[in-house]
Write a protein that binds this DNA or RNA. Structure first.
Lengths: 338, 338
DNA sequence: CTGTTAGCGCTTTCAT
DNA sequence: ATGAAAGCGCTAACAG
C-alpha cells in the first residue's frame, strides 16, 4: 500500500496526499476529504523508512543502559519514554548487561539507524567514554544520566550522592545513633561518593567504621556486616550504600542477636526495598523517573537547536522513612509514587 | 557519507561496494580490499533507512508491555533483547502504562515502522485483542507472553499459574500448615488462576479462606489480611498472589501479634521480594527471562517462515525457599540467577 | 491550489 | 567479475 495507490484511488496526485498526511500545505476541503476517505478505505499507513529517507529525520532516540532489570534504570527508562512519546519519538532500548562488545554493537546500530540522540547510563570509565565519543563524532547528541564522569563539557544529569548521603547520615544522627558505620562497595564511584557524604557528616561526631563488599548485593552486605562485627566494632547505626546490601546487613546482625531497629538502626539507599521489606529501615529515594524525564528533555533541547555546551542537572535523593502502618501515616510513601 | 562517495573514493562502482558490504557476491580480493579501505578512511556507515526501504526488511521487533518497571516484565524484556540482538534485530520498547490510547499510538507506530514482529504482554481483554488484531491484519506476527486469553489460535507463551499455585500450596501443607488461607486480587485473571490452584490443592484438606484486594499492592495485601483476621479466620498458613501482597499480609499479622513464620507461614508469588526481604517466606519464582527468550524465539520462527498456527508454550514457576544463611545453603537461590 | 518530478541511499537485475 | 540503471515509498521544489 503506497502513497501512489492512495492518490490513484482518491483521484488526486501524490503531492496532495502527502500534503494532507502531513497537514503542511493548503488543500481544499473537498480533496482533503477524498484523500482521507481513500486512506481509510485502503487502510493506508505511510512508510516510515521512506519518510525518514526523504526527510532525514528518524524520530527515534536510544537509551543505552547497563541493565534494564535494575529498578532504578527501568524507572529512568519510563521517564525517557514519556517525554519521547509526547514528541512522537520512539525509543530503542539498549540493555548492555555491562558487556563492552554488546555496548559497542549497539553503538554501531545507533550510528546506522541515524538515531537522533542518545541517553546514556553506565559506569563511567574509558570504555564508555570511547563509545560516547564515537557517537559525538557522528554528531549525535548524547546526554548521560547517572553516569558520573570527569568529562565536564558533557550534557548530563546526575545524582548528588555525596550530599544525599549526608542527609541519610544526618537522619541517623537525629535518630539518636551514637556510632554510625558505613557499608559500601570497594570499586564503585557511586559508593565512593556516598562514603564521602558519610565521612563529611560523621567527621566530628564519631569515629569512622567502614566495611566493603565487591558489589551491590545481599551477600556483600552480609559479609561486610560480618566483618564489622568480627572487628568488634561498636555501632548502633549503619548506613549502607544500597537497600539490598542493607538487607544483607540486617540479616547478619540479626544472626548475631542484634535487633533492628531496636539495637541498631539501618539506613539504605535506593528505596527499592526499604519501604516494603517490613524491616523498618529508612532509605534514600532516588528520583529516577524525574531523572529520565530531565535527561530526555535535555536531549531534545540539544536535538532541536541549542549550542550551549555542557548542560548539567543535579538531583538529590530524598528521605523515605519506613512506613509503620499504612492507615496511620498515609503520606509517608510519597516518594514511591511515580 | 553515502555509498556513492565510497565507490568514488575506492574507484569502483556502487554495486561493488554494496557487494562487499553485504558479502553476497564474489568480489576480487583486490577490489574488496580497496573498498574496505575506503570505508575505513571515510568512516562510512550504511544508512539503515535506505537499506530497509530497498530491501523491505527492517530488522526490528517491538515489545508491548504495560509497565517496564515491573521486575517480571523487565526480565522478560531482557530475554527478548538477548535473542533479538543475536539475530541482529533491535527491539523497540513500548511501555504503555496500562493506558489504552498510549497502546494504540504504539501500534500505529509499529505499523508505520513496518516492524517485523511484536511480543505482547498485558492484561487480556477486549482492548488488547483489538490492537493485536490490527497488527495481525497488517500481517505482522504477534506472540503474547504472559497474556492469558481465550483466543486459542494465537502464538503465546504463558505461565501455568494454576499448577504452579498447587506446588505453592503443597509446600505449605508439607510445612505442617493445617489451615491455609488465600489472599488475591479480585478482578485479576492471574489471581483467579492462582486461586484455582489453591482451591484444587486445598479441596479435601481444609476449608477455604480467602480475602481479596483490588490490586497487587502492599496495601491491598495488608487489608486483605485485616479482613481475614477480622472474620476470626483460623489459619496457620497464607498463600498470597504476589510477594508484595505477602509483605502487606505479614505486616498486618505482626501487628496482630502473630509471628512469621512461627505462628503462620507465608507463601508469595513472583519471588521479587521473598528471597531478600528477610521475612523468611517462600515464593514461586517466575522464569521471566526464559519466557522472554521463548517468546522471541517463537516470534522469529514465525517471522522467518512457518505456518504452524497457534504455537504455545507453558512454563511453570519454581519453588524458592527463603535463604537462611548465605554461607549455609549457597544453592538455595538458584532461581534468582539470570 | 494541485500536479510533475527529481531525488533521499541502497539493492539488485541485467548487461558487459 | 564488475558496472549502469531502475526502483523502494516518500517529500519538496517548481510549474502550472
Amino acid at each position: 500500500m503506497t502513497i501512489r495507490e492512495v492518490a490513484k484511488h482518491a483521484g488526486v496526485s501524490v503531492a496532495t496526499v502527502s500534503a494532507v498526511i502531513n497537514d503542511n500545505k493548503y488543500v481544499s476541503d473537498e480533496l482533503k476529504h477524498k484523500v482521507l476517505q481513500a486512506i481509510k478505505e485502503l487502510n493506508y499507513r505511510p512508510n516510515r523508512w521512506a519518510k525518514s529517507l526523504a526527510t532525514g529525520k528518524g524520530y527515534t532516540i536510544a537509551y543505552i543502559v547497563p541493565d534494564i532489570t535494575n529498578p532504578i534504570f527501568s524507572r529512568i527508562t519510563k521517564g525517557i519514554q514519556g517525554v519521547a512519546n509526547e514528541k512522537n519519538y520512539s525509543v530503542i532500548l539498549c540493555s548492555t548487561n555491562f558487556d563492552s562488545p554488546t555496548r559497542r554493537r549497539y553503538v554501531d546500530w545507533i550510528l546506522e539507524m541515524r538515531v537522533d540522540g542518545v541517553v546514556f547510563t553506565g559506569r563511567h570509565g574509558r570504555e564508555s567514554l570511547t563509545e560516547i565519543t564515537r557517537l559525538q563524532d557522528a554528531a549525535i547528541p548524547v546526554v548521560t544520566a547517572l553516569a558520573p564522569s570527569d568529562v565536564t563539557d558533557m550534557d548530563r544529569v546526575l545524582l548528588d550522592d555525596r550530599e544525599s548521603s549526608r542527609l541519610a547520615v544526618r537522619f541517623l544522627k537525629e535518630s539518636q545513633c551514637q556510632r554510625i558505620a558505613f557499608v559500601g562497595v570497594r570499586q564503585s564511584t557511586t559508593s565512593k561518593e556516598r562514603y564521602r557524604g558519610y565521612s563529611d557528616e560523621i567527621a566530628d561526631y564519631c569515629p569512622e567504621q567502614v566495611a566493603y563488599g565487591e558489589d551491590f548485593t545481599w551477600d556483600d552486605g552480609y559479609q561486610a556486616a560480618q566483618q564489622l562485627t568480627k572487628n568488634g566494632a561498636l555501632f548502633d547505626g549503619v548506613f549502607a550504600a544500597s537497600d539490598i546490601m542493607a538487607l544483607g546487613v540486617i540479616a547478619c546482625l540479626k544472626e548475631h542477636g542484634r535487633d533492628v531497629p531496636e539495637d541498631v538502626q539501618i539506613m539504605g539507599f535506593d528505596n527499592t526495598y526499604a519501604q516494603w521489606s517490613g524491616q523498618g529501615f529508612a532509605s534514600m529515594s532516588i528520583p529516577a523517573f524525574e531523572i529520565g524525564v530531565k535527561a530526555a528533555q535535555m536531549l531534545f533541547d540539544r536535538i532541536s537547536e541549542i549550542e550551549i555546551p555542557g548542560m548539567q542537572e543535579l538531583f538529590m535523593a530524598s528521605l523515605a522513612v519506613p512506613r509503620v502502618r499504612p492507615s496511620l501515616n498515609p503520606n509517608l510513601n510519597l516518594n514511591l509514587k511515580e
